[in-house]
Each structure stands twice: as C-alpha cells, then as structure tokens.
Design a protein around this nucleic acid. Structure first.
Lengths: 89, 89
DNA sequence: TCAAATTACGGTCGACGTAAGGATC
DNA sequence: GATCCTTACGTCGACCGTAATTTGA
C-alpha cells in the first residue's frame, strides 16, 4: 500500500469516476485505475462496483474511505507541525 | 513523502542507529540513510543530530515521531478493518 | 583509528502515458 | 454507439545493494 493509492482511492470515491478523479489528481486514467485495483488486490476486498456510469462505493469501500481520510489527515498534521512547530494541534 | 520514509524514520528514532534500524527493516543502510535525509529535505527540518554513536532525535524529530506513529496506526486500522469488517474499532 | 553515516555508481523494478481493447446500457 | 474502465506496451525515473568515502571522538 502507498500514500498514492490512498489518495487516488479517496479521489475516486469522492468523484465517482476514475476519469474525473484522474483529472483532479493530474494523472491519466490508466495509472489511477491500476492503483485502485492494486489496492483492492492487496486488501483482498472489492471497494467499488464498476458500472457504465462510473465507480460506486461498496459498503467495504465506504468503511475504508473513513479510515483512508484519517490516514491523510494525520499525515497532513504531521507535515504541518513539522513546518510550523508553534501551531496548535 | 512516502509510507516507507515514515516507517524508516520511526525505526531509526526507536533504534537510535541507521544500522540497527536497517537490519530490523530488512534493508541495507544506504537506502535508509537516503530516505531519512529525503524526508528531512521535504519537511525542511532536521530531525536527527548525527553523532559517531548514532542518530539522536532532536525536539523537532520527537514531535514528528508522535505524528508519524499516528499515521502508521491509522493505516494499520484501515488495513485491519478492510480485512475483518466485523472487528470492533 | 574505529564505528558510524553518507556518497558513487550500476542495475533492476515500478509507475507513467499513449494507444488499443472490452463491457454495459 | 457512446461512455466508461481496463489491458498492452514501451520508456523513464526511483530505489536498491555493493563498494568507496567521509566524519567525528
């Protein structure tokens, strides 16, 4: 698992489309599609249902989304504090 | 920043030596040394004092360590829940 | 001079982007 | 047939490990 995979996953979950998410993340569709699948493979869980309209979160995906966001939030705080030690939590 | 860098940083902080940390993480010393430096460069903060005895955490490093651990904890929880949806928080 | 970290360097593995190929309505 | 996602494939950058170098008591 990588931070990139987590960021891509959150983007796809929020956009509902690999295409839109990939534009938002400034990457092309195939890498994003591959990373999502690699993430699912590693977790052993299918996070999205694929439909002709886009990607629909499953329940497992919804639960993972909450966790993924917390990881990214903690990461953001770690970065922020390192750069501005005086800041409050 | 990558999860590898965060894991390496925590290992070095806990061991106090790149050498010991690299053995613990099953990697050789140079990659670990490089990743630590890259992390410091990206953060714009020196996390360790280098001494002939090893790596000594600075205050900035100690603060970042707490944050880094939280990132890894959240990641662990994300993984765990994805694999075992029935588990409690 | 010893023990530790770091830099040099060559090789390999991974991730990207373009292009082609499914699948579903 | 239109609109998605995915697979194929070639290229390039990132990371690793061995070996050599540097640094500090």
């Amino acid at each position: 698992m990588s931070l990139t995979q987590i960021e891509y996953f959150v983007a796809v979950a929020e956009e509902g489309h690999v295409g839109r998410a990939s534009r938002r993340m400034h990457v092309s569709q195939p890498p994003m599609s591959r990373q999502i699948r690699a993430l699912e493979d590693e977790l052993g869980v299918t996070l999205f249902d694929r439909t002709p309209r886009g990607m629909v979160l499953r329940d497992e995906g919804r639960r993972f989304l909450a966790r993924a966001r917390r990881v990214l939030e903690e990461l953001h705080e770690a970065r922020r504090e390192a750069r501005d030690p005086a800041a409050e939590d």
